[in-house]
Design a protein around this nucleic acid. Sequence first.
DNA 1: GAGTGGTCTAGACCACAAT
DNA 2: TTGTGGTCTAGACCACTCG
Lengths: 247, 247
Amino acid sequence: MTRRHQQIADELRELITSGHYPVGAALPSEPELARTHGVARGTVRQAVGALISEGLIGSRQGARSVVLSSTPSQSFSELLSFSQWARANGRDPGGSVISSLRGRATPEEASQLLLTEGDEVLRILRLRTLSGAPVLLERTCYAGWMADAVERVPDDCESVTQRLHDDVGLVFAHGEHRIDALAAGTLEARHLEVRRGSPLLRLCRTTTSPEGRPVETGDDRYRPGSVSFTVRNSALTNPMSRNTGRH
Amino acid sequence: MTRRHQQIADELRELITSGHYPVGAALPSEPELARTHGVARGTVRQAVGALISEGLIGSRQGARSVVLSSTPSQSFSELLSFSQWARANGRDPGGSVISSLRGRATPEEASQLLLTEGDEVLRILRLRTLSGAPVLLERTCYAGWMADAVERVPDDCESVTQRLHDDVGLVFAHGEHRIDALAAGTLEARHLEVRRGSPLLRLCRTTTSPEGRPVETGDDRYRPGSVSFTVRNSALTNPMSRNTGRH
DNA sequence: GAGTGGTCTAGACCACAAT
DNA sequence: TTGTGGTCTAGACCACTCG
């Protein structure tokens, strides 16, 4: 069952990405869209709101909405799953588990996962590749209550996210990501095949379930040049923030 | 004139950041909020929607909304203006113009600013400091039609953004930001007081006016450790995307 | 002044979660 | 089964932009 507002959003998105409404062009008015689609204006506004939060269009009171970008944005699951992202971009993802160890949560891990210090966690270190070339060294710390499910995932499983979804119905719904840069250490140098001290892009993440329960936290270190991240902002919906060095 | 939905959003935000509704807690139901505030449910949903897009709460059909994070997010102007951001965080921003030159747009600049190759642009290189310590080397390319206004801004002006707003009524409304890492070159090493080849965090940005007209593009290179960026995502509103190395 | 998007109301039905 | 959020309608008024 597809929602009415989603159909309209999809249609407008298609018209934008296909170039029918190029960057800088004005969209039809909301009353007009409502008429042509046979819906109430509120439904049109839901669709328009979706495109605004994707950064595709901008709107101001009194003037028609304007196309800001014609690049479609990714789905949340593509952002979270390295494999899904790679496949969607026509790349060939690979990877291997370097280590998998149970341990006790550090204070920082405990605070990220809403646990108490010393609770059991599962730490996994993975190397990710694109077309065989190393791209990303990924450290993940899973909350203890899902350690069993994660350990049942085979080491050579391409998409852990997909596997957890299929096996135990676990889905990721929210994420918080912090991005900075740091120098490669000995471990990163060896696995990512770069020189020690060379620049890496680091993404620290914490992911939670639909109920708001933290599921995993970790940090991903990317070999530069292979991957970048983009964010679209506007005065109304501003998802990104800048932080000082003290975390 | 403050809008009703914004008052409600502010109130809920305050209750969340103050800890009255801690992370993991459930909010009152929408009908209840509508009753207690004496408004229609639609108005409450506007307020709730704002908190969702800020990543403060998450919602699912059938269950009450849940607090995901108690950290308030920044305003858009704080993200765009180095000085405003620094002041809001209790730091002491400074800076100086290293060079300011008019030139002709490169193909890349032209495409970012919706100009044609060879159109006039103004390029400015600035060093930004916090408490006197160098933090950021900022390259900005302004579209020619606003070069005069920018050149009238004194070199030692603390906030260019603020000055442009006050002088010519120019406001920034949308931004696109790409983040990656790279090694410091000779220029960055000298001004940021780091070793050549050491890691830097790079943010490439393009900013547009409320009408959707591109105003400036540029790239900011941060000394690592001093600054990081965070993004909150969810399955519905997903502002961040991961990109391959080909820009 | 005509048209636009922003705000708000007062209903209604549905799909889903919790119990 | 009860209550919740998600969707949708059919109006209305206002602040604003634009020609």
